[in-house]
């Protein structure tokens, strides 16, 4: 078998190392004046792309009612069991709405299954990615804190619908 030697013989100048060291120093000196790439975090925030899956939020209709019908699909599908729903009746046409809806953000793994499974597009993943706090209690979100006006979430709703239509087009 023929063996090809890849090892390069060093020239005398390279073996002396000094010219190479100077080259290296010149290079690093030039880099010192380049543009910095660090993001200065609290001032320069990260613009989450629309596909990002942040904290799940409940959609609130224009008239201030929750869109959720308390079907408990999301509660069942949630892998770490982060969602707890207490269903209740309502006079509205949809007949049922959640009395209480809790998402324990200490458990939530941001998998997005709740959003995927919801028949009413009533729970969607938001762009809230900064999910740290100082107490455990404050990280268990109740209905009041989860309900978000539909106008704030319409981009995400449109995006998920687009994806759904693409993969489940009637023709296929």
């Amino acid at each position: 078998m023929q063996v090809k030697r890849l090892e390069k013989r060093l020239t005398i100048a390279e073996r002396l190392a000094i010219p190479e060291i100077l080259k290296g120093l010149a290079f690093t000196f030039r880099i010192m004046f380049r543009k910095r790439v660090t993001r200065q975090y609290p001032e320069e925030r990260y613009e989450a792309p629309i596909a990002a899956k942040g904290q799940p939020l409940l959609v609130e209709n224009e008239d201030g009612t929750p869109r959720c019908v308390a079907c408990s699909m999301c509660e069942v599908v949630c892998p770490p069991k982060a969602i707890t729903i207490t269903g209740g009746e309502t006079e509205r046409e949809i007949e049922r709405e959640p009395e209480e809806f809790r998402i324990d953000m200490l458990r939530c793994i941001l998998c997005g299954l709740c959003e995927e499974v919801c028949p009413k597009e009533a729970i969607v993943m938001s762009d809230r990615l900064e999910l740290a706090d100082f107490t455990r209690e404050s990280l268990v979100f109740d209905k009041r804190r989860l309900l978000t006006p539909v106008s704030e979430l319409s981009n995400r709703i449109r995006y998920t619908k687009e994806k759904y239509d693409k993969w489940h087009s009637p023709s296929s």
Binding site: T28, I31, M32, R34, K35, R36, V37
Partner: peptide, 10 residues
């Protein structure tokens, strides 16, 4: 500082 500059950091 200089180590940061050489690595394009602040």
């Amino acid at each position: 500082k200089i180590s940061a500059w050489i690595q394009q950091r602040y």
